[in-house]
Amino acid sequence: MTRFDYVRPSTVAEAVGLLEAHGDDALAIAGGTATVLLLQKRMLRPELVVDLGGLPGLTGVEQNGGGLRIGALTPIRAIERDAIVRGTHHLLAEAASQVAGVRVRNAATVGGSVCFGEPQTDLPPALLAMNATATIAGSQGSRDVPLEEFFLGPYETAREQGEVLTHLSVPTPVPGSGGCHVKFTMGSPENKPVANVSALVTVDASTRALADVRIVMGAVGGVPMLAHKANDTLKGERPSDALIAQAAVRASEEADPVEDLRGSVWYKRRIIKVLVERALRCAIERAN
């Protein structure tokens, strides 16, 4: 690691001020599981590390109007185990339980996972499928950014250098909804995904048609992607094996994977097709 100064601000305003004043020379860290690794490998060489871990009031999950308010510093492991999340936002708990191993999940935070902007991880697709909104504090006050507009590219998000993500708001799915997160890895389940899929569907109680479908594909593009064509294929229709297969093919065409150590483009398209089918079947079953 290269040398750096370290500061642990005790208010969001102080953190914002430090990040703004030091610009690109500063690195904000939360749990540090991703960032300290990059510091160790000297891929990041900041002059100042701003540890957000001591900011008060940003840890925990509370019910808020029509959904959950999740503090950015809530450990991923806490999301996985939280009774409220497991009850109303099961998809999120399921995705959280699939992030790396238990040691990483205890230290890594929800906000850190979102702000790191890594394409190969599990929480962002689930949060996007659930239509979450990020609240970001800056020197001019707070702004809300829907996750659909938050992820800009690999390791690139709408959070500016002088800003701090404070919490995520995640609406409660309407009755008749079911969600499912599936992940495929090379080797052990702790590995980063070759691809993953979060699906949230709503089944109309009287017609049995799919009133809403949000399939999100992860690790097969620079950002987690809504499978728009697949979603449109399914919306308003009663699900059948043929329709699910057709949607999965559309999703694999929409996917934009790159070749890396986890597989070729050809391979990842085939994996994503199978994952979309699995996630859909599982989500529809849970909705019924």
């Binding site: 642990r8 300290v36 040691r103």
Partner: peptide
């Protein structure tokens, strides 16, 4: 943070000591 040889308990919960700053 992969192999677990450096596992310690932080406030009772296991973490990897190699990817956390002592600070």
């Amino acid at each position: 943070g992969v192999c677990g040889a450096c596992t310690v308990l932080l406030d009772g919960k296991p973490i990897s000591a190699c990817i956390m700053l002592a600070s």
